[in-house]
Design a protein around this nucleic acid. Structure first.
Lengths: 233, 233
DNA sequence: CGATACGATAGAACAGCGTTCGGTACAACG
DNA sequence: CGTTGTACCGAACGCTGTTCTATCGTATCG
């Protein structure tokens, strides 16, 4: 535990920036303009210091990203631990997954980094544990429990990555609304040959103006239904 | 300003490199050393030409990535179209998903780029269509079909992204085997407090030496089971 | 009380990246 | 012959993460 001492070590004297403020500002940059906006120079400017100073707190950009991710996953974990809880472990799993998904929707950059937290410790593991504890309440083998949690995380991350892709510049500029952008896709699809693309024609109206959260919830529900069946309930 | 004619223009005269060879070499670089290895300079050297020449074929690195991705997705699509097919659409969906997943396992970089193909045309759409056609054989609403295909793709991509993260340097060097690396994780987990991490202790033996493909197949099976139930079969 | 060690901070430079600019060679065409 | 347009490339620009070296201020110590 050489690296995580900053939790309790809040009382720094000169406190020019401190680990906390580095992480907070890094997350702020990520939130405001996505992953490409987080550069050491931009971060240093925000902190009112020099570029090299950041290297006193983190050894590399990878570590910065890992710590920033862990920082916000900690908040998500707190939300998940505050969830009321019910007598149905699958309902609880759903609530947890939705909480996690919501967090990624509000912070699209999270999706890409959430799972690659190679650090053994950290909040990702705790979150994993929390999900897993619900499977302990189900009648499953250890093998099945392991796979169940992987599946749920997979659905969350997979859907979030799919949705988290940066929209083209024109949408970010506000020159084109998101609905209009999706509508253009839909229009192109409608012009495809119906004989060659029967499915695309079948669902194009569903795609046009669809809701991301609905899409996620449906995918999650399929997994949870399969899980409920597996647990023999 | 002549960027998109190259599809049919296979018969180039002097053919120093041609679009085909640019894409082939780009994919080769990605395969050999992952996404960071694909740089314009490395690619130019491989093609025996200058850096700026590549810009005659693609307008940006993003387009290069998109085209390279589409290139290999085309091969995956061909594999999927060659699948025998059965009288059970869900069996066919499983076979397609496994084929796609296998392709991503062999090319980990694919996972990250597969879904962000913003180009309207292309092989991703065709693959999406192929998956969707199986749902047309099921008793579902258009809404449910749309969500079903999203869910399957989500499971594939989610699991693949989870597994596709670059292992640390020591594993790539061959200094540490993959089993040993995973084993170290498992060991750290075993040392956690069992009261605080009951689930991690429950599954640590499953995790140690687990098979990625098994993990994926289990996740997929949950989704497919849910889907089968939804279709009322 | 100086001397010294150390925590914390930076400026400047470096190599590598995607991208752009200006220009060259060459085949085809009227 | 000159014009046009395709295919190509060396050199530069601005940006990135990272490292090197130097410098403060403060606490500790002989």
């Amino acid at each position: 535990m050489t690296r995580l001492q900053s939790r309790s070590g809040g009382g720094r004297r000169r406190a020019s920036h401190s680990m906390e403020s580095v992480l907070t500002e890094a997350v702020a940059l990520l939130d405001e303009a996505g992953a490409p906006a987080l550069t050491f120079r931009a971060l240093a400017q925000r902190l009112g210091g020099g570029v090299a100073s950041i290297y006193w707190y983190v050894a590399s950009k990878e570590e910065l990203l890992d710590r920033a991710t862990d920082h916000v996953v900690g908040a998500v974990l707190a939300d998940i631990e505050d969830l009321p809880g019910s007598d149905d472990p699958i309902d609880d799993l759903r609530a947890m997954a939705v909480t996690l998904f919501d967090a990624i929707v509000h912070r699209p950059w999270l999706g890409a980094y959430f799972m690659r937290n190679t650090d053994v410790q950290g909040n990702s593991l705790r979150l994993y544990e929390r999900l897993g504890q619900q499977t302990l309440r189900l009648d499953l083998t250890a093998h099945q429990r392991f796979h169940a949690v992987s599946a749920i995380v997979g659905v969350v991350v997979g859907t979030a990555v799919d949705m988290g892709q940066e929209p083209p510049e024109e949408v970010l500029d506000g020159a084109v609304s998101r609905e209009e952008y999706l509508g253009r896709f839909a229009q192109t699809w409608r012009e495809l040959d119906p004989a060659e693309f029967p499915f695309v024609h079948e669902i194009v109206d569903e795609f046009d103006g669809h809701d991301d959260v609905d899409q996620f919830r449906s995918a999650l529900e399929l997994t949870l239904t399969g899980l409920r069946l597996q647990a023999g309930a």
